[in-house]
């Protein structure tokens, strides 16, 4: 048991001694959030000293994160109150102009909408029926004229062939 623990600790220590770029990049996140413990931090710094690519990467990361502490202050606008007052006046005028309108709208609008819908449905239905009747009549007339003219009865085929000869 003890041997196993010892082996594990030694391998962990050796791993820390040889921090590679991948470990270093993972450590950058931990280091930036301030959670890194002392031995790991030392190894991390040692790796940065020996690897220029990781050092550059960490420098870029650090210089970007540090900007979060830099506060962009916006200067107050001396006309802000006047603009707010104007908007508020408009809102108040709108409210007084439409004073009594909400209850009127609440009752009348659905009634008018329902009436409009019913009239539309009734009108559509009537129009559809009217169109169908007329259409059927026209069709019947057309079929009658086309079907009952029998040319063969008037002039037989044999007669026509003899005439052609």
């Amino acid at each position: 048991m003890n041997q196993k623990f010892l082996k594990k600790s030694v391998s962990k220590y050796l791993k820390q001694l040889n921090m590679n770029c991948r470990d270093a990049r993972n450590s950058m996140i931990v280091c930036s959030t301030g959670e890194m413990k002392k031995p790991e931090h030392d190894q991390f710094l040692q790796h940065l000293a020996s690897c220029s690519e990781c050092a550059k990467l960490y420098q870029q990361l650090d210089s970007t994160l540090i900007l979060a502490d830099k506060r962009e202050l916006v200067q107050p606008n001396p006309f802000l109150y006047t603009r707010i007052r104007e908007k508020l006046d408009k809102i108040e005028q709108g409210v007084s102009k439409n004073a009594g309108l909400p209850s009127y709208q609440r009752i009348l609008r659905p009634i008018l909408l329902t009436l409009g819908l019913l009239i539309g449905l009734y009108g559509g239905n009537r129009l559809g029926n009217f169109y169908d009747a007329k259409h059927q009549e026209q069709l019947t007339t057309a079929l009658t004229t086309e079907f009952f003219i029998n040319d063969m009865e008037m002039e037989k085929l044999e007669v026509q062939l003899l005439n052609d000869q």
Binding site: S32, T33, L57, Q60
Partner: peptide, 20 residues
């Protein structure tokens, strides 16, 4: 805030890694 810091750092780091 802790999770936000980690996520922001990860995003910025991955941006620079892609650049490299």
């Amino acid at each position: 805030i802790h999770r936000a810091k980690r996520n922001v750092t990860k995003k910025i780091l991955s941006h620079y890694q892609k650049k490299i």
